[in-house]
Nucleic acid binder design. Structure first.
Length: 476
RNA sequence: GCCCCCAUCGACUAGUGGUCUAGGUCACCACUCUUUCAAGGUGGUAGCGCCGGUUCGAGUCCGGCUGGGGGCGCCA
């Protein structure tokens, strides 16, 4: 049975890169009829916050990623919050200490700093020189009596470690570059590297799918798996997500959290779809997939090794594509929060059908839900006339035309767009005026704008009364 | 500094030794449709980082170089 996990740290909102890791784990689990587990890695007390855990859970749900076990729903292998598992790690650490696989290190920050400098001078990566490895019992007792802090370090053997990565193939790390690393901090909490392995082991994780930034940590993990006598899971290291300048996606590239895109009015399915296409593709280079199709098509072997640049433009296109191809009911529902905060929706449900019709008229133009209030605003409120265009469309000449149009509108029996269009076109012909000389001022008079939806559909929806009122007010 | 990973249009990708005068999508440009803006349709610009090797034949295999990314903490 396939078991995978997504293990974020609640130190901020769900990041795009993490969302992609979560997504790939999710797709892999569903594709293989396995389980997807959510685990919260909150051992860093300084930076972890409960609000972020809640936010991450909310954003994952928004994206449509569901888990089978997690801190909110429990499961057979809980608890799923590392802060609640401290005693488990301690137990493993004590056992390893007894077995002599792990040892107490009393070195101070200053000593460690010096060591790193020396290692660098020798052309080695900065690391620990192992000086506390063979401390005598007496020495250890003495240090402890003095109340000195200590950490637990793993005795790292000098041998090469091979990883058989599902995405990258064979990766070899030579032994001499890895030094004894910390598994338990002096405050009695585990390091990330230790907690991950213990949890993956106890939670029976079969496939560790994570970002490439963890590839270099993997030898350490393998050593810990071996130390506790556990079987290795399969590893798959996904490529990273980069900003437009090809550096790691970060704050200075603008919005990097899923939350931000959600608030900008992106559809979850569009975001889901786009993110899946980063570092992954099918042989036919298809672009649009439903969640089910993605689950069906997904394969870890097709993951790219090279990192991918997150392209906001393409996401925006995809979002508009999804908006164009989604039912008005859903667009309406999703737009509600945006309409509310724009103060356009306080007057009750009567407006629902009217607003839906307005959205329908604008649908092909909507790129994000955030634009909806602006696009339909003039249907709900008196228009604000664009100053820079005012005189182009409302002048002595057009006022006369508009006055005629009012008369025509007053006489139309069935105030529907076909009839309205026929009559207006007929008027143009009769007076021998170019249609654009009528259409543009009319559009402007009714909406206050030079751009907008289908003119006659818009007039029909606004209704005779409102249209005539708006025109009259202008030409007075 | 050391270790590891990576390399096809500006971006995302297809491509697993001949069918590649390298295909698709976004962006960009032109034309078209048209009452505006969009959307749509048609066409176009643009790429295998470089140098060697293997081979009858290399985007595809091997090596080096260059470039980019990641890691090296009592952060995760």
């Amino acid at each position: 049975m396939v078991r995978v996990r997504f293990a974020p740290s609640p130190t901020g909102f769900l990041h795009i890169g993490n969302a992609r890791t979560a997504l790939f784990n999710y797709l892999f689990a569903r594709k293989n009829k396995g389980k997807f587990i959510l685990r919260i890695e909150d051992t860093d007390k300084e930076r972890s916050r409960k609000e972020y855990e809640e936010a991450i859970i909310e954003d994952l749900k928004w994206l449509g990623i569901e888990w089978d076990e997690g801190p909110d729903i429990g499961g057979e292998f809980g608890p799923y919050r590392q802060s609640e598992r401290i005693n488990i790690y301690k137990g493993f650490a004590e056992k390893l200490l007894k077995e002599g696989i792990v040892y107490k290190c009393f070195c101070t920050k200053e000593e460690l700093e010096k060591m790193r400098e020396i290692a660098q001078q020798k052309g080695l990566p900065p690391g620990y020189d192992g000086r506390c490895r063979d401390l005598t019992k007496e020495k250890i007792n003495q240090y402890e009596r003095q109340g000195r802090d200590y950490v637990l370090r793993l005795k790292v053997p000098e041998e090469k470690i091979e990883i058989n990565d599902l995405i990258r193939g064979k990766v070899v790390f030579e032994g001499e570059y890895l030094t004894d690393f910390v598994i338990m901090k002096s405050d009695g909490t585990p390091t990330f590297n230790f907690a991950v392995v213990i949890d993956d082991y106890l939670m029976k994780i079969t496939h560790v799918i994570r970002g490439e930034d963890h590839l270099s940590n993997t030898p350490k993990h393998i050593l810990i798996f071996r130390a506790i006598g556990a079987e290795l899971p399969q590893f798959a290291h996904m490529s990273m997500t980069l900003g437009p300048d090809r550096t790691r996606l970060s704050k200075r590239h603008g919005a990097t959290s899923v939350r931000a895109y959600r608030e900008e009015g992106y559809l979850p399915e569009a975001f889901f779809n786009y993110i899946a296409l980063l570092g992954w593709g099918t042989t036919e280079s298809r672009e649009i997939f439903t969640k089910e199709e993605l689950i069906n098509e997904f394969s870890i072997e097709r993951c790219h090794k090279a990192s991918a640049v997150f392209d906001k433009e393409k996401l925006l296109w995809m979002n508009s594509y999804y908006i164009r191809n989604t039912s008005i009911d859903r667009i309406y529902q999703l737009s509600l929060p945006f309409l509310r905060s724009a103060g356009l929706i306080n007057n009750s449900e009567k407006d629902e059908e009217y607003i839906k019709k307005a959205i329908f008229l604008e649908q092909e133009k909507i790129k994000t839900l955030k634009e909806v209030p602006y696009l339909i605003e003039f249907f709900l409120k008196e228009p604000e006339y664009e100053r820079e265009n005012f005189e182009n469309f409302i002048n002595e000449e057009t006022k006369k035309t508009l006055a005629d149009i009012v008369q025509i509108f007053e006489k139309i029996k069935d105030f529907k767009k076909e009839e309205i269009e026929n009559k207006v076109r007929g008027y143009c012909k009769e007076k021998n005026i170019k249609t654009s000389l009528v259409f543009h001022p009319l559009r402007f008079a009714v909406s206050g704008r030079t751009k907008g939806p289908d003119l006659f559909g818009m007039i029909e929806l606004l209704g005779r009364e409102k249209v005539i009122e708006r025109i009259k007010k202008l030409i007075k």
